[in-house]
Amino acid sequence: MLIVDAIHAAHGAIEVLHGVSLKVQAGEIVTLIGANGAGKTTTLTCISGLHKPKSGKIAFEGKDLLPLPAHDIVHCGIAHCPEGRRVFPRQSVAENLALGAYIRNDKAGIRQDLDKIYSLFPVLLERRAQLAGTLSGGEQQMLAVGRAMMIRPRLLLLDEPSLGLAPLIVKRIFDVILELNRQGTTILLVEQNARMALKIASRAYVLETGSVIAEGTGAELLADPKVQAAYLGDA
């Protein structure tokens, strides 16, 4: 579904990605784990079009994404839930979700998806008139995911959804991620919380200072002693 082929990306003069390649098949949950500064977010921003790589190829369902601006890539069916949530603070929860549906015109479908999201995240329904800027971190994360899902994407890019959140909320969000995948959304998940990510992933890649140093199924990497030592905090 998504093929990322040898992308090199730089921030100014500093090269951040040194030939990263990965693949996502339809229906999978693929996770990209690694430490801070490894280049995980840059990988996602290259896919969603917020950042242009210096070289390499990115193709989604056969379509070359590189020449497209970010707003056109959304039209292709990719939604990016960015690092730090980035909800629109002065809009209400409901308005944020409505913004997710910006590119859509099917009123019935939008209504349906809205109900689905409210059922997955009941707290959003409760707070639907509240300004997004006043929500807690966990609520904002749920809103960000819900907003991205309102795009009705075929591929959902999630950037560190667990960052800064309490374990219970993280669990809830990961449950929802699994549920979304079950309902048909392919997921590319970037995470620092390697354990939770590897547990739900079909396949995974490990990114270290801009290069992929390991790949395999979630189970394989969970069991790999090198990964355990570096990222899972096991003895």
């Binding site: 917020l50 707003h71 959304v74 039209h75 960015p82 629109f88 809009q91």
Partner: peptide, 19 residues
């Protein structure tokens, strides 16, 4: 709607498909 979103966070607005 697009104007208000862009005024708050242009990058996030792009991710909503807003030009």
């Amino acid at each position: 709607m697009a104007m208000r979103a862009t005024a708050q966070d242009p990058q996030a607005a792009r991710l909503m498909g807003i030009d």
